[in-house]
Amino acid sequence: MRNVHHPTVAELRAFVACMEKGSVTAAADSLSLTQSTVSRSLALLEEKLGVPLFHRVRKRLVPSDAGRLFAVDAAGILARLEEATVKTMAFGGRRDILNLAVLPTFASRWLTPRLQGFSTSAPEISLNLAARLLPVDHERYGFDASILRTAQGPAGFGALMLETDRLVPVASPRLMEGGAVRDAGALLALPLLQQATRPTLWLEWFREAGLDVRNILRGHRFDQFATVVEGAVAGLGVALVPDFAVRRELEAGLLVPASPRTLSLAPPYTLVYPQRSVERSAFRTFLRWLTELAAEAPSQLAGTAPDGTGAREPSAGVVPPGPTVTDGPPLPE
């Protein structure tokens, strides 16, 4: 049954334009419509909602309380519609689109730099990457897969391990006076940059080193590893971050190791996907490409299984899950 009280897009556009311009005439000019068309759309909208959205004062439109409240939502709806339209148009004539939810830093530092190879081998497939810090509902939001810190997906999901969670302490050469600190205890005298979604990293690192951990929580705090890295480059302190997140800064000399001691944690970074995704040839192509990456030598990609073997090549139709490292729910980046 048609919801007759739902506004049309034309009515919302007319209303928002009237809110912005303050008159029907100015709103009609901005929309390249006739004054009578805008007036009719506004009248139909008020009839549907059952409340006046404006007070007519001479030739001016003064928003009512209901109008001011509705304007916020109406403008938001139109903005989201515009965004969705542009996103869809951006795919052009490509037939296959894969929607992936990816941890922000992993997306920018691990996945995106490698995507040129995938685009070259499968130019007909477009990827829509959405940054997500927390697990997503694949069915509700239409994601074909997600990349999380987890050992395995939910029941009925496949999983492929991509990268171990190996953290390294790094800092600006200026802060380290040009060289690495070989004594882990010496780091206690320096500001330690904190990652808000994983606040215990330094605690675990110093505990492994057998050091007093009472003074480790001082230092600037950031909510993503990418900004922690930028803070370290700026000389704000020592960062404890995944090795894949700082490879280019280390190669460029913008950062140096602050200690040879590293911290390896479980679970790893893993692609998880519902079995329905495997039914799509585009996803099988993407998964096969990722599996080949995960099987590369550790010197090029620290994404091998704990026993040193690479991930297995998926067969058509059913793709084996990646190696399980530990149980537990997905974790932040």
Rank of each mutant, 00 (worst) to 15 (best):
112 T>K: 13
149 R>S: 13
282 A>I: 01
89 M>E: 12
70 F>H: 10
1 M>N: 01
117 G>R: 01
306 P>C: 03
66 A>K: 05
5 H>E: 08
68 R>Q: 07
142 G>T: 03
156 G>E: 10
168 V>T: 11
56 R>S: 12
228 V>P: 11
37 T>M: 03
274 P>I: 07
136 V>M: 07
39 S>E: 08
142 G>R: 07
317 G>K: 02
125 I>G: 09
200 T>V: 05
328 G>T: 06
52 P>S: 15
312 R>Y: 00
53 L>F: 12
270 T>W: 02
149 R>N: 11
216 I>W: 04
211 L>F: 02
25 T>Y: 08
283 F>P: 10
320 P>V: 01
327 D>H: 13
172 S>V: 00
194 Q>I: 00
258 A>D: 05
7 P>R: 05
184 A>H: 09
187 L>W: 09
75 A>R: 15
144 D>N: 10
222 F>S: 13
103 L>E: 15
241 V>T: 13
294 A>Y: 00
319 V>Y: 02
22 G>V: 04
276 R>I: 13
133 L>H: 09
15 F>W: 09
293 L>H: 12
45 L>E: 03
107 A>E: 14
183 D>Y: 01
192 L>G: 03
12 L>D: 02
113 P>T: 07
263 L>M: 03
221 R>E: 13
261 R>V: 04
52 P>G: 10
185 G>H: 05
190 L>E: 12
100 L>Q: 06
107 A>N: 11
237 G>H: 06
144 D>T: 03
118 F>G: 10
312 R>M: 04
180 A>C: 11
229 V>Q: 09
34 T>I: 00
181 V>T: 11
166 R>L: 14
63 P>F: 00
290 L>N: 04
270 T>S: 14
332 P>R: 04
104 P>E: 07
266 A>R: 12
46 E>W: 05
36 S>T: 12
66 A>C: 04
38 V>A: 02
97 I>V: 15
238 V>F: 08
84 A>D: 13
16 V>W: 11
12 L>N: 01
46 E>M: 11
134 L>R: 14
